[in-house]
């Protein structure tokens, strides 16, 4: 009971601080929303234009290698582009968004407290290393997932409103998409956040934490995100299996991060 209370108290504290920092919040909300509005709107409105497929890197190759049976029957070329891009090509975006948001919020988790000289007080409380890491991960991960889900909602409404007339009604999301958003987004966010929290615990400046996060965390997450399109091309079962593997990876990484906590390093390397 008190473990849950301590973890939530720590996370709530970070949320309150984030909520009172409009300069930090604005880009976290605006950038994802722009991505999920501009990209699909451009594809749907200009999908028939060959210039689009030649402009977006990798899109033509993706369309050329799309396996048989992945598209509903009877779509004309412009419908095919819109459907393929909206349903398959942009899927990794929703795994990138939480990572992007978490990389900002999690990078400051420990090093931000170090810079503001608040961290030592926290270490004198009954928080265990596990609670400390979990509270910090939760504090950075939940906004990241929330923003990703909100972006997904906007994306879903937008593509159906704009693309529905072209494709003959509501065509999004598919079941595999639902699994990606409901399961994979939190799992990827957790993985990225835990790794960045670890980096933050060892960094001495915020810039250092963000720099190292890019070097250490993003390649790992990029591998996971890179598989997203492939997952969509399979089926629900494969996506569930991927979620299970990612959940195990999350547990292993979390355990590793908890073991790597060094209170001495946190208070003495300021």
């Amino acid at each position: 009971m008190s473990t849950r209370r301590r973890v939530l108290a720590l996370a709530r504290k970070d949320w309150h601080e984030l909520a009172r920092n409009p300069q930090a919040i604005a880009p976290l909300i605006v950038v994802p929303l722009l991505l999920v509005v501009l990209l699909p709107a451009g594809v749907i409105l200009f999908g028939a234009n060959p210039a689009l497929t030649s402009t977006v890197t990798g899109l033509q190759s993706f369309l050329d290698h799309l396996p048989e049976g992945m598209l509903p029957a009877g779509l004309d070329p412009s419908q095919t582009i819109v459907y393929a891009v909206v349903v398959y090509f942009l899927a990794p975006l929703f795994l990138v968004i939480p990572v992007m948001v978490a990389s900002v919020t999690a990078a400051s988790s420990f090093v931000g407290e170090k810079e503001r000289r608040t961290v030592e007080g926290l270490l004198y409380t009954p928080l265990t290393d596990r609670e400390l890491v979990f509270g910090k991960v939760l504090a950075a991960m939940l906004p990241a997932v929330g923003i990703a889900w909100a972006s997904f909602l906007v994306y879903a409404v937008l593509v159906n409103v704009l693309g529905g007339p072209l494709l003959g009604g509501i065509f999004f999301p598919t079941w595999t998409w639902a699994i990606i958003v409901v399961l994979l987004v939190p799992l990827v966010a957790f993985l990225a956040t835990a790794l960045i929290v670890m980096v933050s615990g060892r960094a001495t400046t915020m810039q250092g934490a963000q720099g190292i996060a890019v070097l250490v965390v993003l390649p790992v997450v990029a591998i996971v995100v890179g598989q997203a399109t492939g997952l969509l091309l399979f089926d629900v079962g494969i996506a569930l299996a991927a979620a299970a593997v990612l959940a195990l990876l999350d547990l292993a990484v979390f355990g590793f991060v908890v073991r790597s906590v060094s209170r001495e390093r946190i208070v003495t390397r300021l």
């Binding site: 720590l10 309150h16 920092n21 503001r116 409380t125």
Partner: peptide
């Protein structure tokens, strides 16, 4: 060490009470 500057005195203490 510092307290949380963007929180009120009461909020700082409430967090400590929970911890």
């Amino acid at each position: 060490t510092e307290l949380y500057a963007t929180l009120s005195a009461r909020e700082n203490l409430r967090i400590w009470g929970d911890l």
